Simulated scan of single mutants.
Amino acid sequence: MHTRVIGGWGFDSAVLAHLGAAQPWYQTLELTEPTVLIGWSLGGVVATEALDHPLVCGLVTLATPGHFGAQVDPRFFHRLQRSVQRDPGAALARFHPWIVGEPFDGKRADTVQLDQGLARLAASDCAGSWAQSPVAQLHLVGRDDVLFSDTDQHAIDGGHGFAWQNRGDTTNAIEAFIDAL
């Protein structure tokens, strides 16, 4: 089964390359064969938006809020939005260690379209799309995610970056899902 991995906001999609062919969230999604989409954070929002594509045969979201507006503190979000508008690189440098628990070294940074990415997150309602789609789905969240929590999603040990911090459990869960398709 073919997979396509869609990276999240502010991170080089290569951090998810262990899960399959990875691309940034802002690149056009082109599918030529039946594909399981795997999206991390904002990448999960983008993957969710593609659920009605005829070649999407499965969806895996990683640390993707189902109800962004209800799950993410709006005060934090607006501060981050203003910070990104003033200085995208500095905002990402502050956001990165807090959200994934790792020091920011700039090597995994992707500052392209940060402001547009935040707007896309704010407008998202993934849970509604998930509920309406007949496509097979798996939704994973980090048990210790500081950005949001969701008891309706399957928890994996780790924070918002569990997809690369806990590669073993994440990969096993995705492989079991794909094998069951």
Rank of each mutant, 00 (worst) to 15 (best):
H2K: 15
T3W: 03
R4D: 00
R4L: 15
R4M: 15
I6M: 01
I6N: 03
I6H: 00
G8Q: 07
F11N: 01
S13V: 09
V15Q: 01
V15A: 07
L16A: 13
G20M: 10
G20V: 05
A22H: 03
P24I: 11
W25I: 10
Q27F: 07
Q27R: 14
T28V: 11
E30A: 14
L31A: 10
T32W: 00
E33F: 11
T35D: 00
T35H: 09
V36C: 08
L37P: 02
L37E: 09
G39F: 01
G44C: 08
G44W: 05
T48G: 14
A50T: 06
L51E: 05
H53K: 04
V60L: 08
L62I: 10
T64P: 01
T64Y: 02
P65H: 06
H67W: 12
H67P: 00
G69P: 03
Q71T: 06
Q71S: 13
D73R: 09
D73M: 10
H78P: 00
Q81T: 02
Q81M: 13
R82Q: 15
R82M: 13
S83W: 10
S83G: 13
V84N: 07
P88G: 04
L92M: 14
F95K: 05
H96V: 12
H96T: 14
P97Y: 05
G101D: 08
E102Y: 10
P103V: 11
A109D: 14
Q113M: 14
L114C: 07
Q116C: 14
G117M: 06
L118K: 05
C126P: 05
C126M: 02
A127N: 05
A131P: 09
Q132R: 15
A136V: 05
Q137R: 09
Q137H: 04
L138Y: 05
R143T: 11
D144F: 11
S149W: 06
T151Q: 13
H154A: 11
H154G: 00
G159R: 13
G161F: 08
G161P: 01
F162S: 03
A163N: 02
Q165F: 01
Q165W: 02
Q165Y: 01
T171H: 13
N172D: 15
A173N: 02
A176L: 12
D179Y: 04
D179H: 12
